[in-house]
């Protein structure tokens, strides 16, 4: 095994790239869960975003349009979950699973003609001064815009939930929908908006996979990234800053195991490929062993104004 072949600068740079899709999906899902809704369909929304983003980018030649279309498509798809759980009061776990199954089928159907194609990818930003720094420049300041956008989004969500009135209302709906309803807030409408936002974020994350990270379309390419995003929200105890840490941690594990595979580590390849999943389980156990802190009190509970 040749550990010397792993370049630490490139390693950090690729961690940022590999963490971005999970980060986008996780921060969106965190907002959804903060409003008291458990959407298990992240995987389905991500893969729909991946295929729609890819298809639009290939057809228009514009990755930016691809990202926009991906966000829109996943958000619209997530609204089907929203209508079912909020208006028709269906079980959130079952509906989320249904959303994942629908998303996987839908994406396979749309993506068939695009298999093996290449898409235009996002250009790396050329940041003056910062990008020219000796080590940090390559590491942190030579990425595409979505990496920075995802970081900005985390900051924005943090500030929104902590400092704004709307954020306070969103949290109130998640903590006690009956109280929020009694105060005159439109619980269902607020939750639908949160679900829409979560869908758009998952779509962006999926599109980042198919347009930048891989960049290609293959069936089932998210390979559990949506579920890992769900686990990260639990890991983060529903806090924006910790979502960032969680996503970069998992990005790190993914990149490291790929690097170890490439360097020919004397560990079975299968064990290395399962490591992100095994570590997810391990982290979930460690977090839950401490007792779950910060879960919104109404998470996953249906709301009907009459009861």
């Amino acid at each position: 095994m040749d550990l010397g072949s792993i370049n630490p600068i490139l390693l950090v740079a690729s961690i940022m790239v590999s963490a971005t899709p999970i980060l986008l999906a996780a921060i969106g899902e965190m907002v959804v869960e903060k409003s008291g809704v458990l959407n298990l369909g992240v995987e389905g929304m991500m893969i729909t975003g991946a295929v729609v983003g890819f298809a639009v980018a290939v057809n228009t030649g514009s990755p930016v349009l691809g990202f926009a279309a991906a966000a829109l498509a996943s958000a619209v798809l997530s609204l089907s979950f929203g209508v079912l759980t909020q208006v028709f009061l269906s079980n959130q776990v079952a509906t989320g699973l249904g959303l994942t199954l629908v998303g996987l089928g839908l994406s396979a159907l749309i993506g068939k003609p695009y298999e093996g194609m290449k898409s235009p990818t996002l250009p790396k930003l050329d940041i003056p001064l910062l990008g020219d720094l000796p080590v940090l420049g390559r590491m942190l300041f030579s990425h595409d815009i979505m990496v920075y956008l995802s970081l900005a989004l985390v900051a924005a969500v943090w500030a929104f939930l902590k400092f704004t009135r709307a954020g306070l209302i969103l949290r109130a709906v998640g903590e006690s929908h009956d109280a929020a309803h009694a105060l005159g807030y439109k619980v269902v409408r607020i939750r639908l908006m949160a679900i829409f936002f979560g869908g758009a974020c998952a779509g962006l994350g999926g599109a980042y996979l198919s347009l930048v990270r891989v960049p290609q379309w293959t069936e089932g390419m998210t390979a559990g990234a949506g579920w890992i995003a769900l686990a990260i929200v639990v890991f983060a105890s529903w806090r924006a800053g910790r979502v960032l840490i969680g996503a970069y941690l998992f990005g790190g594990v993914t990149v490291l195991q790929l690097n170890l595979q490439a360097a020919g580590a004397r560990v079975p390849v299968e064990l290395l490929s399962t490591s992100p999943y095994l570590i997810t389980i391990l982290v979930l156990v460690l977090i839950s062993a401490r007792g779950i802190h910060g879960a919104p009190a109404c998470l996953g509970r249906p709301f009907h104004a009459s009861s």
Partner: peptide, 22 residues
Amino acid sequence: VPGAAIQLFQGMLLFFLLATDV
């Protein structure tokens, strides 16, 4: 008919079931 269409078909079945279950 593409194979994925059937997968979508099965997923839709679950969705409609949950919707009508109201």
